[in-house]
Design a protein around this nucleic acid. Sequence first.
RNA 1: GGGCGAUUAACUCAGCGGCUAGAGUGCUUCCCUUACAAGGAAGAAGUCGGCGGUUCAAAUCCGUCAUCGCCUACCA
Length: 808
Amino acid sequence: MEPKIKSKRWNSELENSISEEWKKSWPYGFDEKSKKPVYSIDTPPPYVNTPVHIGQATTYVLMDMFARFRRMTGSNVLFPLGLDRNGLPIEMAAEKKSGKKLTEMPRKEAITLCHKILEESSLASVDSFRKLGISFNSWKKGKGIGELYETDSPDYRSLTQETFIDMLKKGLIYEDARVNNFCPGCQTTLADAEVNYENRAGFFYNVRFRVKETGEDIIIATTRPELLCTIGMVIFNPSDKKYRHLEGKTAVAPLFEKEIPIKSHPSAEMDKGTGIMMVCSFGDLADIRFFREEKLEPVVAINKDGTMNKHAGFLEGLTVSDARKKMAEELEKSDLIVEKIPTSEHRTPICERSKDAIEFIDMPEFYVKQVEFKADMKKHAKKMKFFAPKSRQIMLDWIDSVSIDWPISRRRFYATEVPLWYCRKCEQKIVPPKGGYYQPWKEEPPKGSDGLKGGKCEKCGSSDFRGEERVFDTWFDSSISPLYILKYHKEPKGFFEKNSPCSLRPQGKEIIRTWLYYTVLKDWLLTGKVIFDDVWINYHILDEKGKKMSKSLGNVIDPQKVLKMFGAEPFRLWAAIEGNLEKTDFRCSFERIQGAGKTLTKLWNVSRFISMFPQPKSRPGKLTPLDEWIISEVDGIVNDAKKSYERYDFHNPVARIKNFIWETFASHYMELVKQRAYNEEGKFAKEEAESARYALHHVLDRLMRVLAPVLPFLTHSVYGDLRRKDVHAEAFPEPDEKLLKKKCDFSAEDLMTANSAIWKAKKDKGLSLREGINSAKLPKKLKSIEKDMKATHGIKELKYGSKLAIKI
RNA sequence: GGGCGAUUAACUCAGCGGCUAGAGUGCUUCCCUUACAAGGAAGAAGUCGGCGGUUCAAAUCCGUCAUCGCCUACCA
């Protein structure tokens, strides 16, 4: 008998030919006319200027498994690909490439440089996605449902602006000048979510102050001596006896001779530093809060370029870090520093993008209200189903730590423009109508804007307008991705109404506080809905040594390299089996991806073996007990896999399926059924052979379908060769309930133990596995498969007892 | 400082109240048996981080300590 499948192993060239086939007619487009329920996946748009690395590729592969599985269970899957092209990362790349600061050139020029970066940005990521077999709805850019979208397209940006106009009118957005995180390098205000902390080396300076009334010295520790000129108060803990006599007295700041009140305050801890501290405006966010609560007048001594201003006296013009050094020197000269203790533990807030130290500067910015919605947000976080459930806590913790509203305006260039104009004469605000894409820095306000009357300022009649120059935080854009893909702006009462909330948000744990949090907040404020049903949070793929992949460490693995070395299928199988990305990080190892390839070879050859036998047209009237057993085994596994897949767990079921293929099926069932399936010597009845062939094909069929989401190429190839159908268009298999409930006489373990004992006995005697044995005693439960046991092992006399015994 | 997670075979990981604790890789011995030598068969290998406790029963639950990660915070 000749197998229908010719080659002896799976190879990645077969992937290429299937890719070519799919290129000609892409089978995964979104069908708007379909009556099936929509299952929507809000995929994370990767940045285009750097290609995705293997860790990200792993997450998209897993998302693809979710999508493919849902298609097989009767959903119309919305699985669009988006590309992120807005914001600081693009501007940073442009600055690096040109060697110039964008903030120091005309805006048009800066934008031209960004466009250049975007044009040159390779589409390596998109190519990787294609080769990995990811079934996004479309690879074509467009505005249609499911088409590839870009976050800087006029269509996307107009939705971003529309949401701003809406929220502004609803009073959910306001403008205010308050002290906030400011990055001197990027020259813009930042939200808390964009600030990271790093331990940086520095010093504790123990500085000598004088008490005006008593003339005594007090020693105050600080890491920011350059802020001495902004000191607002000196405080000590109310229960600290050492300083109690100073209550209400006046401290004199050294060098500046500034007089400030000394008070007791619970936020001063007795065992920190010297137990008495100075509060300056502003070393950190806590200082801001303190000044606000104590109604102190802050002195802002730092300019927005990160240099000291006139309030800093002799430090004026110096950068913050130079000023710190200079101040320390001056204090030392005057013998005002008692001690200087080096520390590597000084926690410094830094800009997530540029890594510059954050300063606190007041600027007028737009804010989205969020503090007053903390309780609502916690309710929403509890409503969404998190996979894994423990990931919910990350979001709850973050909500707890929110203390100020969300500043959304940025003083940068390549991002969505804040769509506003102002009358130059009377500062009347001009708000354009929803639906357009506006660039106020280079356009006049459009007709129909609020605040205009006949093209003139409604209030003063002037026609001289100033366009807003600020842009939005990129998260203000990103947080509407589910609205965009569900066509909120095009069909709020149609497609959106019908198909929201979005079924699934898959994303990394590190952007829970940004992407997930902001999306849930903003989309709820706009639509009144909790925008996601399910949230799948992935952990990270680490490098071979267990280190996080990052460009700076130089340990980034390109998926193209993996594709070239092994192809998509071993990588996909590895991604499913290696670890549980919902719960923990795991490592990327080429050795282990290659190892996954062995299972492909096994599965391929199992298929090849089965392909030798014709598939019976219908189910034989009677199946042998062995065949009934294997069918109930595979059906049970498929049934459990379905339940796990629904919970986004591919790891456990696929590992189990892999084990089933190698052990239960290939090593034991196939060995036992071979002779009967061949039936070349006519030892078995025709019906018995038919039963074997039916069971073999049944198992193959189930394996192909249950693995189709994981191994789209291999299953497509095998199923296509043997069934002439596309496995991806098949339904996910339902078990044979009758067989599943029927109890077999024996278990898989009984069978394996018996086989192993016989093989071991032969081996111990130095016999080949093909040689026969005279007698064997097997457990009674195996009696129903006597014929198969005899034929497989060549047993002449078979007896039964409670114990297993082999005689040769 | 607070929180979360991890610690299981040489390595990478499953298992998370109940039969002698599993898998892959690696290792040892034998075998080209007509699906597969990128294979097959057999095998060695673990006081499940330490210490206490709950239970008839503990990798599994509780407490505590240690080490390593991550998140979070007003450590002057």
